[in-house]
């Protein structure tokens, strides 16, 4: 791909990982998820793994992605750049990828919970939304 004939291809944010092989971290991550899920089922204790802080290679990500797979839920959140929330094949295990405005990954998490916090509507926002809707319907009614 390092050819001059490709100079006009726009490349945005090439992945930071340079090496191609497996680092051996994937097994550890999978075992950690298993332990978190067991704890969650037994006690309701939620947990998370920050993938950004681990030295993972491109191949590692590939393995994790194919192993965990895509589940039933796939959500996009649009605040200061997009955020992808995907449930994996294993209900309760969520993969959350946070991008900034420039579409760089700023956080990459595996969460074990029924529903990630960021998907829930914040209670204050709900209350404020209610107030707004009341104002709006009040205004409509008045018209």
């Amino acid at each position: 791909m390092n050819s001059l004939t490709h100079i006009n291809i726009k490349v945005i944010n090439p992945l930071p990982c340079q090496s191609a092989g497996l680092s051996g971290n994937t097994d550890a991550i999978l075992h950690e998820i298993l332990a978190l899920l067991e704890a969650f089922v037994a006690t309701g204790q939620t947990g998370a793994i920050d993938l950004h802080s681990l030295p993972l290679t491109v191949a590692d990500y590939e393995v994790l992605r194919t192993t965990l797979g895509d589940g039933e839920v796939h959500a996009h959140i649009n605040v200061i750049g997009k955020t992808e929330v995907r449930e994996t094949l294993y209900p309760g295990v969520w993969w959350l990828t946070y991008y900034n405005m420039e579409e760089d990954i700023v956080a990459d998490l595996l969460e074990v919970t029924t529903i990630p916090e960021i998907l829930k509507s914040p209670a204050e926002d709900v209350r404020e939304g209610l107030a707004c809707l009341r104002d709006l319907t009040g205004a409509v009614t008045m018209m």
């Binding site: 791909m1 390092n2 050819s3 001059l4 490709h6 100079i7 006009n8 291809i9 726009k10 490349v11 090439p14």
Partner: peptide, 8 residues
């Protein structure tokens, strides 16, 4: 300063 860098 590779192809990606020059493109950037």
């Amino acid at each position: 300063l590779n192809v990606e860098g020059l493109q950037k």
